[in-house]
Design a binder for these strands. Structure first.
Lengths: 161, 161
DNA sequence: TTGAGGACCATTGAAACCCATGCTACCATC
DNA sequence: GATGGTAGCATGGGTTTCAATGGTCCTCAA
């Protein structure tokens, strides 16, 4: 069961070509759940970060959207369809376990040279580490773990540096 | 499953001959769903933009229309038939992935020198970028992504410029 | 004969791909 | 328990492919 949920956290680099490694844990969750290496990323609607999930979860979101409206045709439905599908990007994870982050997504989530992954069950979040530290809802334990990871990589503990 | 839905967004140019590239993502969705390179475009009835879809979705719209009326013959049915089919244009996507936009469609949707594509599941929308920004139902996240794309191409952020 | 539309070629910049390297965790052996 | 070997993961770099777009020529019709 646990192989089917995203959990644990990791700090990875985003290089000059906007490539980044998806943590190996998450990759195997995706492969176990969806039998492929497809990853979906979209900006969060409630925080300045990205939300990541696999195809199975995407299908679930799509089914929710469809059942919310049935055969209805309306402005509301159209707006919701845009919000549900428009900002989502699909990636296929390469042999080395990486994807390339499109600049528009990177910037919308205010991401810099590294990325802080936080597992959250059916999905995971990906934050700029400094933005996560500054977030009002940040978990103190996760912040402490993040600070340790930053230190271990020789990265500054604060964005200003 | 997910390869069969339109999602993600893109900003493409419309050149002096009214040629425009259909985003590669959308092209492969069309090919996967309909086994051809046929695209249908029609003005939206609820917004100032174009709606695009493939042959499979066209068939679905047609089936919905038919089941709504059965064998009924009426002015309403005729009016709905006109609305459903009258303004639809079929395109075949060329080798380079482009179509030529008829001036009437371009003008009806108030399209200028570029086009903002938004995936919405079984169909996608195509807006003039400045008109999308100004739309009351615009999604703030998509607006932000659009502004980034405008900037990346050196285009003005506002229509007035 | 001139303009419009369509087919075909050309360019450029980004995205996918392939190969190489440090690092660490785990394993087997001594 | 120490030591050497091996494998997997996170990264860096270079190369090739392809998408998006601009341009030219050709054809057909008015």
């Amino acid at each position: 069961m646990s192989v089917e949920l995203f959990f644990s956290s990791a700090l990875n680099a985003v290089d000059g070509k906007n490539r980044l490694s998806i943590p190996a844990d998450y990759r195997s969750v995706i492969e176990n759940r969806s039998k492929n290496r497809q990853l979906f990323l979209a900006p969060s609607r409630s925080a300045t970060c990205l939300i990541g999930y696999d195809e199975q979860q995407f299908d679930r979101l799509q089914a929710e959207h469809a059942s919310r409206y049935g055969a209805e045709i309306s402005r509301e439905r159209a707006a919701d369809a845009r919000a549900t599908f428009g900002a989502v990007t699909k990636f296929s994870i390469d042999e080395a376990g990486r994807i390339v982050l499109p600049p528009a997504l990177k910037r919308t989530a205010r991401i810099g040279a590294s990325l802080w992954f936080i597992g959250a069950g059916h999905y995971f979040e990906a934050w700029d580490p400094y933005r996560y530290q500054a977030d009002a809802d940040a978990d103190p334990i996760l912040v402490e773990m993040l600070r340790y990871e930053l230190e271990a990589r020789g990265l500054p503990l604060d964005a200003s540096a």
